[in-house]
Amino acid sequence: MLTAVEWEILLLSVKVGTVAILATLPVAFAIAWLLARKRFPGKIVLDALVHLPLVLPPVVTGWLLLLAFGANGPVGRFIEAVFGQGLVFRWTGAALASAVMALPLVVRAIRLSLEAVDRKLEDAARTLGAGRWRTFASITLPLSLPGVMAGAVLGFARSIGEFGATITFVSNIPGETRTLPLAIYSALQVPGGEDSVTRLAILAVALSLGALAVSEWLVRQSGGRKGSHVL
């Protein structure tokens, strides 16, 4: 069915997408919680910063990542000093680019689900003897879980489709940073590469539908209520 190269592309895409979404989720949840629940100075700035990847040209996001995380960037130098290896030209860099691009979508989905949690239920839990943390873990988190899952799938799909920021930040290296969209782009540059493009495009469709199916399954497993389904 799939050639060795196609397998490599598929597995790399899944790896990058999975790591990206796992890295994004906790950060996105914390930001979503702050935006949904807290009033603080600079809230508008945080909201705008989070949404920046959604409105900026992805190439610009990639370039900004290069400035910050590149070999000469302040964060990049720190990471290289600590881990002995930077992010540029590596799959971890592709995951970072995907994570940043997915962040606004994931924050949005989680924020909406957090705002939909009835605060009165949290009050009830407090009167029954639950402290803030236990109330969060036993009431807030489970009630917002379907939204968190929907956000995760949305973010994963976004990661799988990431192109502009990735190619700008970590280039297009076979086996390291050449994910599905980058591979499709490369195949388009080669004369007679149409067949290969078609096969990769079908793969992309299958992967996205697969992600949707997984999310539906997860929502059902968690006893999701109406309105929490992506489909």
Binding site: K120, L121, A124, A125, T127, L143
Partner: peptide, 12 residues
């Protein structure tokens, strides 16, 4: 022990 007017049973 607070019995709320809107009950507030945990739906999940």
């Amino acid at each position: 022990g607070f019995v709320f007017q809107d009950l507030r049973l945990f739906p999940h």
